[in-house]
């Protein structure tokens, strides 16, 4: 029969998993781009890849300490944002979409190719970069926790660091979005010509937004690889789309939306997958195989994206008042 406790416990673990934190952070970056500034960045996967590879390569190939590796990743994403932004931020919004999606694919293909295999590990990717991060861990060896949340010292360290970064950056986002800077940014989303006519350097603000949200994505990419390996196939366009799904679920122009959205997304997915997979096992769904059960999730994510955009475009945390005026 179905082990409900196991399903619920697995789902509950997603609440604080580092993956959830990474997606929340990437979605927060997209909230700055898309929700607040109106920039259609379809290359968040590329920013995440830069974080992952920037960190891993710095540690593996150059033996850099953790702080330096983080800075390398951030530096790479700033350069990436500049390269993307300079040609496109003066053009209509959909050009940025095409260029960012193409640039993210270029990055992934360059990380995958055999040509740079010595540095990138090509299709197999990279691992073995976690030592210096684990060495910073002040938690003594052992297993801690309660209920479903039982982890060893590394897993706790990872969760604490990951969620601390999320909370700090959420706070930062909240601060800047209620400042005059945030006002200009939101004005640009509504009508950039109007903001330009008021004497604001729209191009520069869009660039700042692109860089800032991109750096969030890069940090998310680093949190994402600390519990696993760096694998280029992770950074496909679908990754960006999942982050968009989370953002839209929570509410595009909100601070809490991306975070709670990520938790809901992962908990529900885990619960749903666990349930379907065990239901298939128990023979409740005779027409479905285990593999098909896995694919059902993607179908549902796709349908969810459509339904949210059509019926609740402001997301869970979005302002209801806005709905009347959203075009």
């Amino acid at each position: 029969m179905i082990d409900w406790i196991q399903i619920f416990s697995n789902a509950a673990q997603e609440l604080i998993s580092p993956t959830t934190a990474a997606y929340a952070l990437a979605a927060l970056g997209l909230a700055i781009h898309f929700g607040y500034t109106g920039l259609l960045n379809f290359g968040q996967a590329g920013f995440m890849a830069l974080g992952a590879y920037g960190y891993a390569i710095s540690v593996l190939s150059f033996n850099l300490p953790v702080w330096a590796a983080v800075l390398v990743g951030i530096g790479a994403s700033v350069v990436f944002a500049l390269i993307l932004g300079i040609p496109t931020l003066r053009l209509r919004a959909d050009y940025l979409a095409i260029v960012t999606i193409a640039a993210a694919e270029i990055l992934r293909l360059v990380f995958t190719t055999n040509t740079f295999e010595a540095i990138t590990g090509s299709a197999q990717g990279l691992n073995g970069y976690k030592g210096s991060f684990a060495a910073l861990n002040p938690i003594p060896k052992g297993t801690y926790g309660f209920g479903p949340f039982q982890y060893n010292e590394y897993d706790w360290w990872l969760r604490i660091v990951g969620w601390t970064v999320v909370v700090l950056l959420a706070l930062l986002t909240w601060l800047i979005m209620r400042s005059p800077w945030g006002r200009v940014i939101k004005g640009i989303r509504e009508d950039e010509d109007a903001v330009r006519a008021l004497g604001k350097n729209v191009y520069s603000y869009k660039m700042q937004s692109l860089i800032l949200g991109g750096v969030y994505g890069t940090l998310a990419g680093m949190i994402f690889i600390l519990p696993r390996a760096v694998v280029p196939a992770n950074y496909q366009t679908s990754l960006t789309f999942f982050v968009y799904a989370i953002l839209l679920l929570g509410g595009a122009a909100t601070i809490l939306g991306p975070i709670i959205g990520s938790m809901i997304f992962w908990v529900l997915l885990s619960f749903f997958s666990g349930f379907i997979s065990r239901a298939v096992e128990a023979g409740w769904l005779p027409f479905m195989t285990q593999v098909q059960a896995g694919q059902l999730r993607f179908i549902l994510v796709g349908i969810a994206i459509m339904l949210i955009v059509i019926f609740r475009p402001q997301g869970i945390f979005g302002n209801k008042k806005e709905l009347a005026f959203v075009k």
Binding site: F241, Y244, A245, Q295, F298, L300, I303, I305, M306, V309
Partner: peptide, 14 residues
């Protein structure tokens, strides 16, 4: 455009 992205995912995995 985002609806079409969702539709693309849903159809592809179907």
């Amino acid at each position: 455009m985002i609806v079409s992205i969702g539709l693309s995912l849903a159809i592809r995995y179907t």
